[in-house]
Amino acid sequence: MPDLERKLGERVLVGATYFETDFRNLIQTAYLPTYATNVNVGRAVAYGAESFVSVKLTDTLSARVDYTNTVTKDEVANQELLRRPRHKVSLTGIWTPLPNLTLTGTLISIGSFVDGNRDFSVTRLKNPSLTLVNLSANYACSETTTLFARIDNLFDQRYQNPTGFLGPGLAVYGGVRLTSF
């Protein structure tokens, strides 16, 4: 897997990774008219690239964009593998308005992918793309104590991943993180 990471000046970092996996004897679910069963996919492949750009906009504000493109193929059936999105992108902003306070916002977008429905009546369907927004705040009280708060799925986006299983809705977390070193 070739991996490349380079600084472009003092404020920009870029990186890319190519990956390829050849599967032999991959076990996957096959959806038949009245039931589902596990089958052995004799040969399959997954390959693609991941890349990122990280920019330090100011001393207190930075941003990062990550993108993954994945191609999958059941080489026996000549079909795309189930539950593997072709595109995934995330955009993260990090702001440190005070020396001990860090605020982070992340937008995650996952492209559509092939799946089978839960009652097995449709063997291959397209699960729609989804976009989520997550926020977090961390305040370092000392070297060993941090207060944190996090909001996942800020806009309570309804999605299924995999098809037939509802993803988590809006969730709010908070607490104290203690470390010994």
Rank of each mutant, 00 (worst) to 15 (best):
V41N: 06
R43P: 01
A44I: 06
A44C: 02
V45Q: 03
V45K: 00
V45A: 02
A46F: 04
Y47C: 03
G48K: 03
G48H: 05
A49N: 03
E50Y: 14
E50R: 08
F52C: 01
V53Q: 02
V53M: 07
V53W: 02
S54Q: 12
S54L: 12
K56V: 14
K56Q: 12
D59G: 10
T60F: 03
L61P: 07
L61H: 13
S62P: 15
R64V: 08
V65E: 13
D66C: 08
T70C: 12
T70I: 13
T70H: 08
T70M: 13
V71N: 09
K73I: 14
K73Y: 02
K73L: 15
D74R: 00
E75K: 15
E75P: 14
V76E: 15
A77C: 05
Q79N: 09
L81Y: 03
L82E: 09
L82A: 02
R83M: 01
R84P: 00
P85M: 08
R86A: 09
R86D: 09
V89H: 07
S90Y: 11
T92L: 01
G93M: 04
I94P: 04
I94D: 10
T96A: 12
P97C: 12
L98M: 13
N100P: 09
L101G: 13
L101H: 11
